[in-house]
Amino acid sequence: MNAAALPAGVERVSRIPYRLLSWGVPMGPLTLLRTQGRRTGLPRTVPVVTLRHADLDWLVSPFGATQWVRNIRANGRAELGRGHWFRTVGLVEVDGETKLDVLHRYRRAFGFIPFVRHAFDATPGDGPSGFRTEADRHPVFLLQPRG
């Protein structure tokens, strides 16, 4: 099973926030996600957007089962942060109505970003149930603090 291919230009554009976040520059909901490579065991770091909803933090992969998603599925934990400050988190993949609600909120909150807007067929006006047909394409993880 191959990981999802990122849309053209996403990797190139993500270098800028990656660099700024690695220097410790705050960038709103953008943060660095550091996972352990499932085959190599080496650290892999990518910029991601965290969503705060219902007093919980969520990670959504708008581009499907990317490498970071596959690493999390293999390990269940990661680190989030910027600069030299990272915190360890557990990640639990969610399904069902909760997933639909999170996808709806994510698309509504970050739809102004062209890559996010184009990754979804459903729109905020469709409500959470409008995301049912594409829910399998967008993994959603609940973040849980770990010590």
Rank of each mutant, 00 (worst) to 15 (best):
P43E: 03
V69F: 06
L21H: 05
V116S: 07
R52T: 05
R77C: 04
R77I: 01
T45K: 13
I72A: 07
N2D: 02
A78E: 00
G147H: 12
G96C: 06
E134M: 10
L32C: 05
H104G: 06
T88Q: 15
R12P: 00
F110P: 01
L91Y: 02
A109W: 00
H138C: 07
Q36C: 08
T123K: 15
G147D: 11
E134P: 03
A3M: 04
Q144T: 14
R15F: 00
W58V: 03
K99C: 06
F115C: 09
I16H: 00
Q144V: 14
R132E: 08
P62F: 10
L56K: 13
R70M: 12
F141Y: 04
R39Y: 00
L32I: 02
N71Q: 06
R38G: 02
G96F: 06
G28W: 08
L6E: 03
G130P: 07
R39Q: 03
V46I: 10
Q144S: 14
D126V: 10
L142G: 05
G127M: 09
Q144P: 02
F131D: 03
F86S: 05
L103D: 08
N75C: 08
S61R: 07
G24Y: 06
D55S: 13
G64R: 12
E11R: 15
L51F: 04
K99S: 05
H104E: 09
R117V: 00
E11Q: 13
R52H: 09
P139R: 13
I72C: 06
A3R: 11
P17D: 03
T50S: 09
P29W: 03
T133Y: 05
R77A: 09
G76H: 05
V116H: 12
K99N: 04
S129V: 10
V49Q: 06
R70V: 01
T35N: 09
R39A: 02
W68H: 13
R117M: 01
S129K: 14
E79R: 14
T35F: 04
E97Q: 13
G130K: 13
S61I: 02
A3Y: 00
G147F: 08
R34D: 01
G83N: 10
L143H: 07
G24A: 12
M1N: 07
T35K: 12
N71H: 04
V92C: 10
Q144K: 15
P114C: 08
T133K: 14
R34I: 01
I16F: 07
R105G: 01
R117E: 04
V25T: 12
R77T: 01
S22Y: 02
P128Y: 09
P145K: 13
R137P: 00
L51A: 05
N71E: 03
T133A: 15
V92A: 15
R70S: 05
R117N: 09
V25E: 10
T88G: 10
A4G: 07
A65P: 00
D101R: 15
D57T: 05
T31D: 10
I72K: 06
W68S: 10
A135S: 15
L33N: 02
R19L: 07
H53G: 03
A122T: 06
G130Q: 11
R77K: 09
F120W: 05
G28K: 15
Y106I: 10
